[in-house]
Design a protein around this nucleic acid. Structure first.
Lengths: 128, 128
DNA sequence: ATAGGGCTTCCAGTCGCTGGAAGGTCAAGG
DNA sequence: CCTTGACCTTCCAGCGACTGGAAGCCCTAT
């Protein structure tokens, strides 16, 4: 299976597949003509990475998760720890964004939004 | 006021102040010795930018907001539009993160987290 | 023979800083 | 007067995770 097909199977762009090979996340074989030859295992790994990325794990974390996944002797506690840590980071981000939203929403609500120059948003950003 | 003092006043690192000068966000004068000399207006502008950045606006958006702020003839509608658009982006990010949190939280909850290798989190990432 | 599509590599750019090296400047202390 | 140490300067490189583009090879169909 060459790269275009693998891209369709995994939903990842070809550029990303090449990048993942470059950083050693996948190691597809090569055909005699130099084309990458993705195996079903490669596709499986890539799908796993894609899912993990979609949940916000960094590429390095994905590498670790992938290793854990391939190691049938791993302790589930290790994985749980990583996931819980990541969950906490996500919660934190949400809280940060929610704070931004609240502030910004207040500013927007206070602004008439007409053609007059008086603007509570800018005043707010300037610090009253 | 040289850069170290300006950094303390604005809460921004000196590196960031130099960077902001490089991209033309601020244009501090120079002393005869070549040191940057920040005026009160510079500090005001930097504070404005710092606040806007803290609300998640991109640096380019900050540049625009800064211009609008300095233009006493601007229409508040322009600012409101930018802010509302940004607000929508923030809401979207929050929704994305909330979805991640929910999925991840389910996976974590299903995982015993002991020293056995069976791990619903990895199974979930692998796609059942 | 040629046209097209897909594949290869390599290099540069994104965004917003951040770190570090090499060196100039300044005020205080011995 | 000299040194020390804290400042300041510039320039260059790197982060994460791609993304775009150029130059060129490969393969199939007409």
């Amino acid at each position: 299976m060459n790269i275009g097909h693998a891209a369709k199977r995994t939903g990842l762009p070809t550029k990303t597949l090449r990048y993942y090979e470059e950083i050693g996340l996948v190691k597809p074989a090569r055909d005699t003509n130099g084309y990458r030859a993705f195996s079903e295992v490669d596709i499986h790994n890539l799908t796993f990475v894609a899912r993990s990325r979609a949940l916000g794990f960094s590429v390095e974390e994905c590498r670790t998760l992938l290793t854990l996944w391939q190691d049938t002797d791993r302790a589930s506690a290790d994985v749980r720890k990583m996931a819980a840590l990541h969950l906490a980071r996500i919660e934190e981000k949400i809280a940060d964004l929610a704070a931004m939203r609240d502030t910004l929403s207040e500013l927007v609500q206070g602004c008439a939004g007409d053609d007059r120059p008086d603007c509570p948003i800018l005043n707010g950003l300037a610090g009253e």
